[in-house]
């Protein structure tokens, strides 16, 4: 099962999915090339700044009007199905955009992955790629990124994000269960004083 999933992910390897439009040391925002095609919540993405690849985990995505002042209006009252709306309004994709945010969890320099913040944020217009399965596997051999993530201040629940990221990463490991157990153990030590949080995450990641 892990392999199937790995294959699915590797198909996307060279899929350039978007471009950075806002960047900081800890997060970056990218616009997705395709409307409604943001990478999965909790998936691993990377963006090169020429020297290093910044690695992030997708933690938020939204689709809204290009013009922040104007909201889209409902158009389908007389259409038979949703697709007809887009067919009959070909200008729509130009008026809408999909953006996603990734939280920076490390970077790759040369052949090594590092689980701490990169020296520089990605550049604006940097190409954003989905990480290939083997990259995710390499990166998640160590679980130090959980330390940074656990206390991150995000718009979504950190626990949801961690669970989603671990579920995705586990699929890239041969020993899926063993990976989840060691991740669980890492969390158990991080959440020594918050058993409820720990239990919540464990419930979400258990294989």
């Amino acid at each position: 099962m892990g392999q199937e999933m790995g294959q699915r992910m590797s198909l996307r390897t060279d899929l350039r999915i978007g471009e950075v439009i806002e960047a900081s040391t800890t997060t970056f925002v990218a616009q997705s090339y395709e409307l409604h095609q943001a990478p999965d919540f909790g998936s691993f993405v990377r963006v090169s700044d020429g020297a290093i690849d910044v690695v992030g985990i997708v933690c938020y995505a939204e689709t809204c009007g290009v013009d922040p002042g104007r909201r889209p209006i409902a158009r389908g009252k007389d259409e038979a199905d949703e697709e007809d709306i887009y067919r009959n309004n070909p200008e729509l994709p130009e008026l809408l955009r999909t953006e996603f945010t990734a939280v920076v969890v490390g970077f790759r320099e040369g052949s090594g992955f590092f689980q701490y913040l990169p020296p520089r944020p990605p550049r604006i217009h940097g190409f954003v790629f989905c990480c290939a399965a083997h990259e995710v596997m390499e990166f998640t051999r160590e679980l130090n990124f959980l330390h940074a993530l656990i206390d991150a201040n995000l718009r979504v629940s950190v626990d949801e994000l961690i669970a989603a990221a671990l579920r995705q990463a586990s699929a890239t490991h041969d020993l899926e269960r063993a990976f989840l157990v060691s991740a669980g153990k890492e969390l158990a030590t991080l959440l020594i004083n918050d058993v409820n949080r720990l239990n919540g995450i464990l419930r979400r990641i258990k294989p």
Binding site: G184, K185, A188, T189, L202, K206
Partner: peptide, 13 residues
């Protein structure tokens, strides 16, 4: 009672 949780807890919490 969940073996996964039991395995995680053992040796940590």
């Amino acid at each position: 009672s969940d073996p996964f949780v039991a395995e995680v807890i053992a040796g940590t919490s």
